[in-house]
């Protein structure tokens, strides 16, 4: 990892991206890094494309990732793995939830869902880690924990002890959802190994 690490989160409004970026940010803080995080809500909710940007390092100035500088892309939906391609570089790790959520033009039959997204990223030399987060979350017992499955999958690529994540989940998630989220984290971590 260079001076600062950059994580870009992309997905669809309602997938719990903000919570995932929050858990990641606190875990990095716990590991002693300076962290900045930026996201824009507004019109991005209601099923639109959503991004969150997280930067960490010894000292982080700008909250925004520069084009070509994302070290990790966490794509919560397959197509959203390539919408922000200008942020990627050859050594970016793309961790992608292979779930498909159809945008309106596809749902109404006017356009086809692009099925070659991941192959095209690999062709550029980018490492793509596929995680069936939705399926794993269902197995764990709560489909809504797909976001934490993704955090688990990413955790294998960050210089942070898993204990930090577990502590964050234990302190920040409501008691009734704690156990299932811990399981989701573990399952996600195992899935990307």
């Amino acid at each position: 990892m260079k001076e600062t690490g950059n994580i870009l989160f992309s997905g669809v409004g309602g997938q719990g991206i903000l919570l995932a970026s929050e858990v990641t940010a606190y875990s990095l803080l716990g590991a002693g890094y300076d962290v900045k995080k930026s996201e824009v809500h507004g019109m991005a909710q209601r099923g639109g494309s959503v991004t969150a940007q997280l930067r960490f390092g010894k000292k982080v100035y700008s909250p925004l990732i520069e084009p070509g500088c994302a070290d990790i892309l966490m794509a919560f939906e397959m197509m959203e793995a390539s919408r922000y391609a200008e942020y990627l570089h050859k050594d970016t790790k793309v961790i992608v939830n292979t779930q498909k959520i159809l945008p309106p033009a596809v749902a109404t039959g006017q356009m086809a869902y692009p099925d070659d997204v991941l192959a095209n990223l690999r062709e550029l030399g980018i490492t793509v880690v596929e995680v069936d987060a939705f399926e794993i979350a269902k197995q764990v017992g709560e489909p809504k924990t797909a976001n934490v499955v993704m955090v688990g999958a990413m955790s294998a690529f960050l210089p942070v002890d898993p204990k930090n994540y577990i502590q964050v989940i234990e302190t920040r998630v409501k008691e009734q959802f704690r156990d299932v989220n811990l399981k989701a984290f573990e399952a996600g971590r195992n899935a990307s190994k």
């Binding site: 099923g47 639109g48 390539s82 919408r83 391609a85 200008e86 309106p104």
Partner: peptide
């Protein structure tokens, strides 16, 4: 300047009412 990957043409994903 630096060389960047170009995003492919994708169906838009605008927000929608619930």
């Amino acid at each position: 300047t630096k060389e960047l990957f170009a995003a492919p043409k994708l169906p838009n994903r605008p927000p929608n009412m619930c």
